[in-house]
Design a protein around this nucleic acid. Sequence first.
DNA 1: CGCACCTTTGAAAGCTTTCAATACGGGTGG
DNA 2: CCACCCGTATTGAAAGCTTTCAAAGGTGCG
Lengths: 249, 249
Amino acid sequence: MFTAPDFAYTPLATRLKYYMDVGDGDVAALEGIAYEERHVVRGETIFARGQNIEWVVLIMSGWAARTRYTRDGARQIVNFLLPGDILTPDAFVIRQLEHEIEALSSVTLRILAMTDMQAVLERANGLASALWWAAAQEDSIVREHVVRLGRRNAQERIAHFLLEMHRRMLVVKQAAENSMILPLTQAEIADALGLSLVHVNRSLSFLQKEGHIDRRNTVIQLLDIPRLAEFCDFDTLYLSLERQQQAAV
Amino acid sequence: MFTAPDFAYTPLATRLKYYMDVGDGDVAALEGIAYEERHVVRGETIFARGQNIEWVVLIMSGWAARTRYTRDGARQIVNFLLPGDILTPDAFVIRQLEHEIEALSSVTLRILAMTDMQAVLERANGLASALWWAAAQEDSIVREHVVRLGRRNAQERIAHFLLEMHRRMLVVKQAAENSMILPLTQAEIADALGLSLVHVNRSLSFLQKEGHIDRRNTVIQLLDIPRLAEFCDFDTLYLSLERQQQAAV
DNA sequence: CGCACCTTTGAAAGCTTTCAATACGGGTGG
DNA sequence: CCACCCGTATTGAAAGCTTTCAAAGGTGCG
């Protein structure tokens, strides 16, 4: 059912190549950086709020999330971090993280020394702008999340969210054309979409009843993506920012 | 009532100096860049979605906003842009804007050529990381906005929002200790906070009745900031990210 | 088999929106 | 100087979406 992952590239490289012209030299430079691998279990806090960030950290597999907590313990998931995402886009300038990063499933991380990364960035010309582009894409995704929370009802939020996750997983070859593994509980979806668990459940049932989706445990099928996109006003422009022709800096 | 603005520095420099150690040389380099000034009236679209960004644009005075529209024309304000904010943090890598930037009041912009900016960044050592820090601060602000929308009720959202705006204006010396000019209609506040105009009105009345705020036209007083912060669980950590000690890149 | 965690369902309560109508404030034309 | 106008603010009441509270059903695992 699922296409085999493309083992030729790391998820980050796959993503960068999907959206941009990144030279093979740049990709090789990125993938050639010495790294340490770290495995994290579901529920574990990868980075705590206030923690010092001293490396560049990439997700190789699994799902994580940037989260914040309110005084009364409610959690808000600010963004999901999928294979190929960078946990630490601002590692070079920001000392302390102002949010938490939590593992939502088993996660494999690749940890690079900042000095190594810098050295490579100086050599691999297009890489710096490609990574900067990746950071800009995350910004755009978070902005779209604001719109989702501010201007859509529960059913639309969920539909829109599912389409985003599917698209992002597809890009890193971790989803099939019409289905994917969604390693989230309904409570986690609720924490992301500013809803209650109960209402997420009911809205999911609604989408199922309407023939938009089909769930079997963690496997979710999007039965008619154009129709679902129409239903929730999903437009992928925010994911596919165009990169500047001749990248500077 | 309001302290005189500090004319020695531009708002951006004031902000950078407030949050970080930025050398006077760096500041002078930034302020010395050749620029063009542009005046925009309230309601005008400064940049449209899809538009090419070919300059670095700073706000010198007035309020603007990053906005997105849904299919049915509803507007979501994603973030407010105040004096000292950078409209184009990703100008070096992203070609097209995926959102709109609109003027909410009369706005004065300073427009820099990207090539000039690049040249200065190469000379002024700390400036690049200071600007990167500023971009990271905006990311953090948007993330906090997600929390506000996802996990707070109307009254808390408004209170939290007012405190953020006041704090940001204070930093660029555009607010008094307990009051500020808020050049927004209630409809605009609604579009930012994912609420209806009517409910914004009622929630504002509530805050007034409770003695939290006092409004007179566009002037708003925050009568007891610690108490208001307690009311809505406002914590400024997200605004005052610590910069890396020795900035790299 | 029992526990722990997740999903589902029902019903009432609550927050927010929508619809409608009435003030208000400042600016313009007579 | 005053009537009029328009955009904004305010208020009331009903409708609607979402949450909360409670309880039952499922599923995987030790």
